[in-house]
Design a protein around this nucleic acid. Structure first.
Lengths: 197, 197
DNA sequence: CATAAGTGGACAGCATCTGTCCGCTTCCTC
DNA sequence: GAGGAAGCGGACAGATGCTGTCCACTTATG
């Protein structure tokens, strides 16, 4: 994702070194994993360890924590926007809807830590992406409603909010042998509850 | 909950002082709130602050962290067991089921931090409570299935697992103005998806 | 090969948590 | 009341872990 290939070397300036690019990619990927498993407060050391680089490298790339989080969020949004386009390309509106709904839910579940706090952050570029995804999602949902496949008693924002549901399977009782199965189960029942009778 | 009234003073021994009892209750309540909002790793200082007592008091009451967490869990289980009994008392099996399901879901949502790690801990007393709740829950679910009101294609454990669904509403996108509304929404749709016909 | 870009990780400074200890307060008994 | 034990609060030391910097070293490039 977001592999920033530099432009050709201009004048005598040196091109961006390939090892630097590779490390940048590693850091971003590690950050995604780290944020997913340890929340927004992951330490830079943790990310560096996960990426197999030194802390200095992470700090050089993202001097401000906001920048790092924005990069992570942007990376996720890019993937989701892509999925949303696929969803709109489906002839069957319900199929498209469940595709997007499932992706959103799983992505949200994997990044439960990434909630609220980043809403306002991330700068205009990320805001733009978020807006785009939101718009696509609205269209996917409304199209499914128009085709009579999706309940009409919920506003599209409400349907969207449901994607946050399977975020955590933590239960007071002690049964979660397989979170993946749990997510799948929740999605199945939610979709059953959303489908038109 | 669990207010441990001491037996009458035996011999010349002094009865448990009332201020000590009051503080014990405060600490437990504070611990529940703190665990709910900050997870299992809340510091003792945080709990003490929340309870309005000194750290020493908390440490004296619960020298081991496990003991504190077991107390919290036990307190929650007690409430839920009570609700489960109410559910079994309902003539309408579906009504009973949704009562218990909703309670379990909300309680789980409020205590998302209290997941996994405590499964094995808590000692035999808590294990006993958990077992009791599990058994009651199974009966509530199977009764609803027997009355033909609840989908039969899910095992009772699967239905139970669904209660963990609304645990977190954190979304990659930025909309969670009202978590309570979110929970309610999820429950509504889940129940719709679970109902027969 | 020369050189600059990039790297790793030690390190100082800071924040926070744990667990203890002891002078003081509160409650109970007589 | 008065005496004394039980309980309390919170300062404090020690441990841990995080942030952010800095510089000797490595590596890609021309």
């Amino acid at each position: 994702m977001n592999t920033e290939r530099s432009a050709a070397p201009q004048g005598t300036a040196m091109a961006v070194r390939v090892d630097a690019q590779r490390n940048a990619a590693r850091v971003l990927a590690a950050a995604r994993r780290a944020v997913a498993s340890a929340g927004l407060d992951v330490s830079y050391h943790e990310i560096a360890r996960e990426a197999g680089v030194g802390v200095g490298t992470v700090y050089r790339r993202y001097p401000e924590r906001d920048q790092l989080m924005a990069a992570v969020l942007s990376d996720i949004l890019t993937e989701l926007i892509d999925t949303a386009h696929q969803a709109l390309d489906c002839d069957d509106a319900w199929e498209g809807f469940s595709l997007l709904f499932t992706s959103l839910a799983l992505r949200t579940a994997q990044n439960a830590g990434l909630s609220g706090s980043l809403d306002q952050h991330g700068g205009p570029a990320v805001a733009e992406q978020r807006h785009e995804l939101l718009d696509l999602t609205r269209r996917v949902i409304e199209r499914a409603q128009d085709q009579g496949r999706l309940r009409r008693d919920l506003a599209w924002q409400e349907v969207l909010r449901l994607t946050g549901a399977p975020a955590v399977q933590g239960c007071v009782l002690g049964l979660e042998p397989d979170p993946a199965h749990g997510h799948h189960l929740v999605l199945t029942v939610l979709l059953d509850g959303l489908q038109t009778g």
